[in-house]
Design a binder for these strands. Structure first.
Lengths: 246, 246
DNA sequence: CGGCTCATGTAAAAGTCGTTCACATGAGCT
DNA sequence: AGCTCATGTGAACGACTTTTACATGAGCCG
């Protein structure tokens, strides 16, 4: 039973050398399989091959470990949203939808981070660093909404970018929470969460007056950083945004 | 300290008489203040004035208590949504938005239920009764979407009602989870969660081609159960759905 | 190279929970 | 009156969190 521990101890000596990181990784794995609620400080210590008291040299308590994970999560989240947005290339609407997909992809592919960030019940606003990280992630959506709002078709009132950002955030979060994870994900849906969110966003954007048809594959020429594009399409795609894809 | 317990015991004798209900109420209170994660079986027992083992005569384990609460929550939720929908009176769009507001109101006014239902991490689909209750609640939204879809303006493709229902659900859930409770609720918003959701839904409906202007106060005459109403309004309200109210 | 020091780890202990088990109580039926 | 079974008690077990006193050894200083 404990020969592993002994052996590992032999390998690394009395001092672990990188316990903090090892604990974070262990916790990540545990949260992924048992949820933030089921995750245990003692388990993480065991998994790292140290005593139950050792983690207290690196984290004030269990919550601080969770916060650290959430923090990292927000950072990775921000990175993925940033990459998806890609500064609005090749065009604002396409990039915008890519951000939505990235949101869902993150929820699906990083359940542990997502769990720690949004479902662990830890008070985000109690930790300034955590709040700042969350803010930075949201700012990606906000910046994207800003650019999108600037393209509002002339003649219609320009929607407040902040409101758009909050709307999109709530859609992505709602779909991710309800359909893209765990329990309700098993609810049999007429379409995938990705398709569901894409249609939702497209309908929403159309409600704001944006042209939302899929554009034809770009002619290969590199478009300028911020193409004018103001009203390139005409309007409603045949069948609507929910037309069966493929 | 313990005179209360003694006194209560004197009042009610060895047998509590209504322990199951008392435990549910106690748990509800505890969840409201400390969240489903922080809620403790032992605490509920203490609050009901019985030993820590007593609850096991009424619930298989802690999870079953939580499930019972979630179940009740879904039932109350369904009742509130049903009342808000009011079978589509006075007109479908108005009633539909009332359902959205009811969703938020429930999340705000019944944090304990909401927590148990959506944030406690208990496997909804593992409990058939729970799943059924959740299904019934969702069916209200679904039925409302059905009626709304049937009113789709002629000439435009008719949106699938199920999709609409899922979209509306995700919006309401997203707004409720992110802005209407606990942590992120303190994020300073440019508008209230209610206004946020209302605008979101209106824009969405407009994207589907529905007329979404506010109608003038009804002339006092009782409208027929399902008024025709198909395209009573003209289209875009001045300033858009996000126009500063009041 | 020898010794100091401090970060890092351990063991033990206290307090809390969840859960089980043998036993106690008393409400309601016969 | 007596029986019985649902309901409550107390004690006990193991797991977890957190604290405390003590151990180890890596890195630095002379």
């Amino acid at each position: 039973m404990s020969w592993r521990k002994e052996q590992r101890r032999a390998e690394r000596g009395y001092h672990h050398g990188n316990l903090k990181e090892a604990l974070l990784q262990a916790a990540l794995g545990l949260i992924a399989e048992k949820g933030a609620a089921g995750f245990t400080f003692a388990d993480a210590a065991r998994m790292a091959g140290v005593s139950a008291a050792a983690p207290y040299r690196h984290f004030r308590d269990r919550d601080e470990l969770l916060s650290s994970i959430a923090q990292r999560g927000f950072e990775q989240f921000e990175a993925r949203l940033t990459a998806a947005w890609d500064d609005g290339r090749p065009d604002t609407v396409t990039a915008f939808e890519r951000v939505g997909k990235a949101y869902l992809a993150f929820a699906r592919e990083e359940p542990a981070f997502y769990n720690a960030m949004f479902e662990s019940g830890l008070p985000v606003d109690a930790n300034p660093a955590l709040q700042a990280a969350s803010e930075r992630a949201f700012n990606i959506i906000r910046a994207a909404a800003e650019r999108l709002a600037a393209l509002a078709p002339p003649g219609t009132p320009r929607p407040p970018a902040m409101m758009m950002a909050l709307h999109i955030w709530s859609m992505a979060h709602g779909v991710a929470s309800l359909f893209s994870r765990g329990d309700a994900a098993r609810r049999k849906l007429p379409m995938s969460p990705d398709e569901l969110l894409e249609a939702e966003v497209l309908i929403y954007l159309r409600g704001l007056g944006f042209p939302t048809d899929r554009r034809p594959p770009a002619k290969s020429a590199e478009p300028p950083p911020v193409p004018p594009e103001a009203s390139s399409g005409s309007g409603v795609p045949p069948g609507g945004p929910w037309g069966k894809p493929k």
